[in-house]
Computed example of a mutant assay.
Amino acid sequence: MEQQAFSRRRSFNRAGAISWLWKTLSGWPLPRLWRFASLVGALVYRFSKRERKVTDLNLAVVYPGLDASERRALAMQSMRHSTATMMELGYAWMAKPERIEAGIVEVYGREKLDGARAEGRGVIVLAPHFGNWEVLNFWLSSHFPFTAMYEPPKIAELEPIIRHGRERMGAQLVPTNPRGVAALLKALKRSEAIGILPDQEPDWGSGVFAPFYGRNAYTATLLPKLVARTQARVVTGVALRLPGRGFAIHFLDADERVYSEDEVTSASGVNASVEASIALDPAQYQWEYKRYRKVVEEQQGHPEANRFRLY
């Protein structure tokens, strides 16, 4: 009982400190946030062994043509952007809406969403971990009926803050279960927009292996099921950071393979669509995520598994 009480107090104290930080940083101007994130990100790269190792290994896989110094520079810049995203959460969730709207200085490809809805089709937005996806959520839910899946945070005390921040402009959050999938289908049939994380590894049984930068990555198969039942249009959406100035929203046509009924073909198209968005600025992708984890898990026990081990 005492241990449980201690754990609850520690969780509450962490939640309080994090929410205080978000609230404080929400009032900072974007140029100041970027300068601070650049300093902290360099320290994270230097002292956080886990994030540095995963980032370096991922970059070695996807950009084998870069030499060690080029990869190191890209990894450090990526860590700065990832740190900026974390520091901008308070801005995205708590700052006045008109201030965030003013910080979105450019929007490219909106006609792709408007055109689909004019045709009576829903829009599936593939939103990878690139730039600031919370700013993308803000913009989408400000301009369209928008539904996205939501998984509560590990620190339960933070859920009201996160949920309010994501829902305050009208977004509907649904659970990551069959009931949530049913809600996504209904939204698409109403010619609305929904958001999907295309680069988050699903649980075993909910995905297939498909190439991501030439190496198999376990990829969710929800998309072809949604497309087959709704004829929705698929686009990739990102909020590209313009350091010190704001953000540019980009909507890109998804790779045509995403419309295939074959799950591996569709997943290959999803990964190619993510690659196309990363090409806008590779440093803004969250390379510290273990995208190839399931490949390693599958190879456990294989006599040559260690030859292929990344993480």
Rank of each mutant, 00 (worst) to 15 (best):
S48Q: 12
V135S: 03
L113F: 08
F47L: 15
A95E: 13
P64W: 13
R110V: 08
H129F: 03
R72P: 12
R99V: 09
P64L: 10
G122T: 02
A68W: 07
T85D: 15
G120S: 06
F144M: 04
E151T: 14
K53H: 14
H129I: 07
S69C: 08
S82L: 13
E88S: 04
H129T: 02
P145Y: 00
Y63N: 00
A60R: 13
A95F: 10
R117Q: 07
D114Y: 13
E157F: 14
M94G: 10
R50E: 14
Y91F: 12
R46H: 07
L136E: 03
A73Q: 14
G122C: 00
S69M: 08
L57T: 13
A156F: 11
P64G: 13
G103L: 11
A73N: 10
A102H: 11
S82P: 06
G109N: 02
D67T: 03
P160H: 10
V125L: 01
D114K: 12
L89E: 04
K112T: 11
M87L: 10
H143L: 03
L126G: 04
K154T: 11
G90L: 05
I104A: 09
P128E: 09
N58F: 05
A156C: 13
K53F: 14
Y108I: 14
A116H: 00
E111V: 07
D114G: 06
L113Q: 10
G109L: 01
D114M: 09
A84G: 02
L140G: 04
F47K: 12
R71V: 02
P128I: 01
L66T: 14
N132K: 00
P64K: 12
E70T: 00
P64V: 11
A116E: 04
K112P: 10
R117T: 12
V123H: 01
V135C: 04
D114P: 05
L66I: 12
R50F: 13
M87C: 04
L126K: 03
L59I: 09
E157K: 10
E159I: 03
D56F: 14
Y150E: 05
E101K: 10
Q77A: 15
S78T: 09
P97E: 11
L89C: 05
E151M: 15
K49L: 14
V105L: 00
Y91A: 08
G120H: 07
R52S: 14
T55G: 04
E101Q: 08
V62Q: 06
R71S: 02
G122I: 01
N132P: 04
H81C: 11
W133L: 06
F144W: 11
R71T: 02
G109F: 00
V61C: 13
E88G: 00
S82E: 09
D114T: 11
L136D: 05
R80V: 15
K53V: 15
S142C: 00
V107I: 02
R121Y: 00
S82R: 08
N137E: 09
G120T: 07
I100M: 15
F130Q: 05
A84C: 06
L113D: 12
E111C: 10
L59A: 09
F130R: 03
R117G: 10
D114F: 11
L126I: 02
S141K: 00
V135M: 06
V125H: 01
